[in-house]
């Protein structure tokens, strides 16, 4: 009898462990960035929690003078239409090549999810929204940095135009170079978080994410996704690839 009980409880224990690890592994629809039991990801979440509690949510990054603009290499995917660059998606690459040939006249940014008015914006539509120009420093995780002037629409203006719902907690970005990522509302509503279509007074070059890229100034460069195609407003955290791919999701440092 004692043995039976032991077996039963062991079976219960195994079942419990399996279902809880299944919860850990899904990674979708979490309310916090998942760690998958990885100590490094727990450290990332600790840094995220500490920075969010110790730093002002509205602090602005320093802005520079035009005379301080520097050279800036285009790294990662420098052209989604070329199969040899970075994370390539053949289908998205073909779509991108067609759009680029038409000078992005047929390009659309889709905004869906928790918004009252899901909208498909053309580049001209976006340029009619409020505009912000900022000269800021791009800091790459590799260790280099560059100063450039960015012109675009503040993300909060775009979300307001679409009627963002109060339950929104994360904003997800999907791109033509097979990247996807999300940010929390503190970053999404920050005044310097813009969707840039201009760089140093000209149209955003292909290598820097034409026709539209995110500028997320208080995080490391790889959070500022290039070649945007779709934005989804969500109330749940989804691991869109960084964390399962072995990279930190929050990069305030």
């Amino acid at each position: 009898m004692a043995n039976d009980r032991f077996l039963l409880s062991r079976r219960g224990l195994i079942g419990g462990l399996t279902s809880s690890s299944a919860l850990l592994l899904t990674g979708c629809g979490e309310s916090q960035p998942p760690t998958y039991g990885n100590l490094l990801r727990m450290g990332d979440n600790f840094t995220y929690a500490m920075q969010r509690s110790l730093l002002s949510p509205t602090s602005l990054v320093r802005e520079y003078d035009r005379s301080e603009v520097t050279s800036m290499p285009a790294t990662g995917t420098y052209d989604p239409a070329i199969a040899s660059t970075g994370a390539h998606d053949p289908e998205a690459g073909r779509d991108y090549a067609v759009l680029r040939k038409g000078a992005f006249a047929d390009w659309r940014l889709e905004v869906t999810g928790l918004v009252d008015r899901p909208t498909s914006f053309s580049l001209a539509d976006i340029k009619r929204l409020p505009r912000r120009t900022q000269i800021t420093k791009h800091q790459c995780e590799e260790g280099w940095s560059a100063i450039a002037e960015w012109t675009g629409v503040p993300l909060h203006s775009l979300l307001t135009a679409c009627g963002m719902q109060p339950s929104a907690r994360y904003v997800e970005f999907y791109t033509y170079d097979k990247n996807a990522d999300n940010i929390d509302m503190i970053d999404a509503l920050h005044p310097q978080t813009i969707l840039a279509y201009g760089m140093n007074g000209q149209d955003l070059p292909i290598g820097h994410g034409a026709p539209l890229r995110l500028r997320l100034e208080r995080q490391i460069g790889y959070k500022s996704l290039k070649f945007l195609r779709r934005i989804v407003v969500s109330d749940r955290f989804q691991d869109l690839g960084n964390i399962s791919g072995g990279w930190a999701w929050y990069n305030g440092i």
């Binding site: 920075q51 730093l55 002002s56 602090s59 602005l60 990054v61 320093r62 420093k137 800091q139 100034e217 208080r218 995080q219 490391i220 305030g252 440092i253």
Partner: peptide
Amino acid sequence: MSPAIAAN
């Protein structure tokens, strides 16, 4: 070197 801390 932290963009968030230098902003603060």
